[in-house]
């Protein structure tokens, strides 16, 4: 047994990279759910983003173009969900699940010619001075741009939801769509925009997998990351910074268990491999038992469809 083989600094840096796809997808879904819409199709949007981003990056030679294409791809797919649920009043749970099925099939078809090809590399940015700070520099300031983007996005979403008028409207729509409608807000339009934002974020998360973290395209490569993102939103009780916490916790345990195995720690592998899920449950139980119910609350209109009768 040799704990010394695990360098905590390197480990932290890996955790940030491993968690970024979930952070991106989860913060997008948080905005969607804040608007009162439950889109269970995160996995489908992620994998679509992964393939769109990969194809675009390979064709253009630029990862940036790839990420933009991934966001567009994810947003377009989510628009399908938006039209069905917002205009045609279809059930959100079932439509979201169908979206996952659809996205998995679509991505596999689109990606057929791109198996076994390498993506153009995304450079790590080396922030001058900051990156050279001992200890912290290595963890915090030597990643690719998307890691910072994902953290910045959390901050932006938090600030917008909390302080801006747009945030207020969004929350109003999510809490009580009839009242928001009565106040003259375009419920359907706001929800559509939120859904597309969520799709774009999920697409970025998928592209982070196919362009940076793995990086390559293979069918079904998201392997359940979208479901984890959904769980993280619940875990975070719909609060932006807790999404970051939840995603890093989950990603952290996942990476840590592999590190423990590699270091030869004598814990049975079966227990290690289920540890990320058990620890997530455990932390949630502790958090929820310390808190009164109201504070846990999901947006009141979550999952309910809205139809303006007048």
């Amino acid at each position: 047994m040799d704990f010394s083989a695990i360098n905590p600094l390197v480990l932290l840096a890996s955790i940030m990279v491993a968690s970024t796809p979930i952070v991106l997808a989860a913060i997008g879904e948080l905005v969607v759910e804040k608007a009162g819409v439950l889109n269970l199709g995160v996995e489908g949007m992620m994998i679509t983003g992964a393939v769109c981003g990969f194809v675009a990056a390979v064709l253009s030679g630029s990862p940036t173009v790839g990420f933009i294409a991934a966001a567009i791809g994810g947003a377009l797919l989510s628009l399908l969900f938006g039209i069905l649920t917002q205009f045609l009043q279809s059930n959100q749970v079932a439509t979201g699940l169908a979206l996952t099925l659809f996205g998995l099939g679509l991505s596999a078809l689109v990606g057929q010619g791109y198996v076994g090809i390498k993506a153009p590399p995304t450079p790590d940015i080396h922030i001058p001075l900051l990156a050279d700070i001992p200890v912290i520099g290595r963890i915090v300031f030597q990643h690719d741009l998307m890691v910072y983007f994902s953290i910045a996005l959390i901050g932006v979403v938090w600030a917008v939801l909390k302080y801006s008028r747009i945030g207020l409207i969004l929350r109003a729509v999510g809490e009580n769509h009839d009242a928001a409608h009565a106040l003259g807000y375009k419920v359907v339009r706001i929800r559509l925009l939120a859904i597309m934002f969520g799709g774009a974020c999920a697409g970025l998360g998928g592209a982070y997998l196919s362009l940076i973290r793995v990086p390559q395209w293979t069918e079904g490569m998201t392997a359940g990351a979208g479901w984890i993102a959904l769980a993280i939103v619940v875990f975070a009780s719909w609060r932006p910074w807790r999404v970051l916490l939840g995603a890093y916790l989950f990603g952290g345990v996942t990476v840590l268990q592999l590190n423990l195995q590699a270091a030869g720690i004598a814990i049975p592998v079966e227990y290690l491999s289920m540890s990320p899920y058990l620890i997530t449950i455990l932390v949630l139980v502790i958090m929820s038992s310390n808190r009164n119910r109201a504070a846990l609350g999901a947006p009141a209109a979550l999952g309910r469809s809205f139809h303006a009768s007048s």
Binding site: L80, L84, A94, T95, L97, A98, L99, L101, F102, G103, L104, G105, L106, A108, L109
Partner: peptide, 9 residues
């Protein structure tokens, strides 16, 4: 898979 997705939609 795509067809199943469409059918559901």
């Amino acid at each position: 898979q795509l067809l199943q997705g469409m059918l559901l939609f």
